[in-house]
Every structure is written in structure tokens, then in C-alpha cells.
Write a protein that binds this DNA or RNA. Structure first.
Lengths: 146, 146
DNA sequence: AAAGATTGAGTATTCAATCTTA
DNA sequence: TAAGATTGAATACTCAATCTTT
């Protein structure tokens, strides 16, 4: 079961990524970042927040953000009460790209999930997964309420 | 649900990998290869077979095998009816390492899977996943009977 | 000293091109 | 020409060290 889950996950992920690429869109990991920024109501997020939510390595996220800023999808504001940090905001272009990605990504998720989950209780499973994530990351931010 | 599944999978995978590393053992992807070779009854496997079973890129597998051969866990036999290819066999050292990894890996799988799966029908889910893998890889080898 | 973030070195992964044999 | 496998260049990721601010 674990093996199958891993293979399926790997396979689906690659499949989705390559479909996005064929459409000239960025990879899936960019979507995660865009989505977190887009859904945030107020004034943006700090890099370390994204790091916790999305399970990035510090240095890896730092470089990914650099690429996204260069691509014009994200902007960073130097302003802060804490001058160690930055505030990240999604740009209009970033929102547009995210929407384009979602049109594809969303339908692919639905297609695959319904396949995997069958008649299982999705909501219950989601809770179990979320609980696991929360537990396994001690001394870190809890996952977002959604 | 999909998001949670991804995060959980990423988290568990990293967690397992780092535990293995702490014990001085190789990463999880090595386990997959060792396991496929160890379970194969006859005269070994060809690289392209591993590639299909484990969803490796050709070049990635090629380099991974090089590392494993250098580490003495796998040996390659030049003999073949088809002189383009090689035969891969696991060494005694490889079998030993695999067993050591399984002692840890197996218990971690059990711990996490029972957590995720809850009271769902594991067998049914496994079938669904396996079917998905088989379908999504056209013109490729079918997954092994297990 | 600790938190937030970046940089450099080393490793792993991907893509495309290449090589050999079928 | 296609299949099996390797190589080189480019990208991405990880680990450790560093820098700035708290």
C-alpha cells in the first residue's frame, strides 16, 4: 500500500508537471507558493511562513523566490517592523498565472483523486493527514486553517 | 485533500530518509532498488526493467546505479544475450543493508500508514492505486504482481 | 545567543544529445 | 530506425556556514 501510494504520487505529480510545462506554465511547486500568497487576505507573507506551510528548506525557498521574483510573479517589500525580514506579495501577473494553472491543475486533481479515493470518506482522510502533518512538525507553525 | 496528501507524503518521506541517514544507512530510493533486486528470483534485472518498475528517469537511474555499485551493494554482469544491456545483481552486502533498512523502514511505514488510513479498506485502496499506475504508464511495463 | 534570510559547495535530478547493438 | 544505456550541460536541492537584526 505504501509503495503503491508513493509510486502513484510520484507518477501523478510528474504527469501534472509535464502537462503544465507543455502549456508553457510554471511547475507545481510554484503553484503552492502563488496559492498561499493569493489566499492571504492582508499584507502578504514572510518567507519563513511559507517555509513552514509548504515544507521548504530555507535555502531552497530563498532561491525559488528569487526565480519567481525574476519572473515577475512575486514582489518583495522591504518594509517591515522586523528589519531582518521581507514581505512577499503576489503580483497581478502572478494571480493571472495562478488562475491559468488552476484551470488545468484543478481538473487533474479531481480526475485523479476521485480515482484513488473511490468511495472512501475524503473529509475524514483529510483530517487524518492534516493531523499527521501538524504532529510531525514539532516546534513549527501549525498548518493553516484553510 | 490532495494538498494534504502531498504535504504528508513529502513530510513522511523526508522524515524516514533522515532517520535512515542518522543510522548511517542509504536513502529510501536505494531501498527500492535493493528490494526489487532482492526479490527477483532468477538471474537479476536489467536497468530498463527497474526504470519501469520504479519510475526512474533513464539517466537518473544510470547514475544512481553507479553510486550503488561503487558502494558495493550491487554488481553488474556484462554477460547477456543482448549485448546492449547489463544484468544487475544484488551483492551479499546489499542484502544485508537492505535488511537493516527494512528493520527501520518497515516499522515507520506501519506507524504512518495506520495513522493515515484509519479504518479505510487498505486492500481496496491499494488496488485502486495500482490500477492508476498501470493506466497512466502507457506503452510501458505493467507493475509487478508483487 | 537566537531568528530570518542568503550564499557557496556538493549532490541529485532533468533534458537533450550521443553511443552501441538489435 | 529503434531500444538500452551513458554522458554533458543546466537546473534544483541539501547541508553547512555566514550575515544581519532581535
Amino acid at each position: 500500500m505504501w509503495i503503491s501510494l508513493n509510486l502513484a504520487q510520484r507518477l501523478i505529480y510528474k504527469n501534472m508537471d509535464s502537462i503544465l510545462k507543455d502549456q508553457g506554465l510554471p511547475p507545481l511547486r510554484w503553484y503552492d507558493v502563488l496559492w498561499e500568497l493569493d489566499r492571504t487576505p492582508g499584507e502578504g507573507l514572510r518567507p519563513f511562513e511559507l517555509e513552514k506551510f509548504l515544507l521548504f528548506e530555507q535555502s531552497n525557498l530563498s532561491r525559488l523566490l528569487r526565480r519567481m521574483i525574476d519572473a515577475g510573479l512575486v514582489e518583495e517589500l522591504i518594509f517591515s517592523d522586523d528589519r531582518r525580514g521581507k514581505i512577499l506579495k503576489i503580483t497581478d501577473k502572478g494571480s493571472t498565472i495562478r488562475a491559468q494553472m488552476w484551470a488545468i491543475y484543478g481538473s487533474l486533481i479531481h480526475k485523479h483523486i476521485s480515482r484513488i479515493a473511490g468511495d472512501h470518506d475524503l473529509e475524514q482522510m483529510t483530517q487524518a493527514l492534516r493531523g499527521l502533518v501538524d504532529e510531525t512538525i514539532p516546534k513549527r507553525f501549525k498548518s493553516r486553517p484553510d
